[in-house]
Computed example of a mutant assay.
Amino acid sequence: MRIPRFPEPAATGTVTIRATPAEAYAVISDPTAMVRFSEEAYRARWLNGATHAAVGARFQGWNRNGLRRWATRCRVTDADPSLRFAYEVTATPLAVPISRWQYDIAPTDEGCTVTETNWMRVPLWFIPAAVLITGVLDRMRANGAHISTTLDRLKAHLEAVPAPRP
Results as ranks from 00 to 15, higher is better:
residue 69 R to E: 11
residue 145 A to C: 08
residue 158 L to V: 12
residue 146 H to E: 12
residue 18 R to V: 11
residue 122 V to D: 02
residue 154 L to A: 08
residue 40 E to L: 14
residue 150 T to W: 07
residue 128 P to F: 00
residue 33 A to Q: 15
residue 13 G to F: 00
residue 63 N to G: 05
residue 11 A to D: 00
residue 47 L to V: 08
residue 3 I to S: 07
residue 85 F to M: 02
residue 32 T to F: 11
residue 81 P to A: 13
residue 64 R to T: 04
residue 154 L to E: 05
residue 111 G to M: 06
residue 135 G to L: 04
residue 41 A to F: 06
residue 128 P to W: 00
residue 136 V to Y: 02
residue 152 D to R: 15
residue 129 A to W: 09
residue 89 V to A: 06
residue 111 G to Q: 06
residue 145 A to V: 09
residue 139 R to V: 04
residue 97 P to A: 10
residue 87 Y to D: 05
residue 136 V to R: 00
residue 13 G to T: 04
residue 26 A to C: 07
residue 88 E to R: 09
residue 77 T to E: 07
residue 32 T to R: 12
residue 59 F to Q: 01
residue 91 A to T: 09
residue 95 A to M: 08
residue 3 I to M: 09
residue 59 F to N: 00
residue 109 D to S: 11
residue 73 R to V: 15
residue 67 L to M: 13
residue 40 E to Y: 14
residue 4 P to E: 13
residue 106 A to I: 05
residue 154 L to H: 05
residue 115 T to I: 07
residue 6 F to S: 06
residue 36 R to H: 14
residue 115 T to R: 12
residue 77 T to M: 05
residue 34 M to H: 08
residue 92 T to A: 13
residue 37 F to W: 13
residue 151 L to T: 03
residue 126 F to N: 01
residue 84 R to P: 01
residue 36 R to A: 15
residue 7 P to Q: 07
residue 112 C to G: 03
residue 4 P to L: 14
residue 128 P to V: 01
residue 77 T to Q: 03
residue 112 C to E: 03
residue 158 L to A: 06
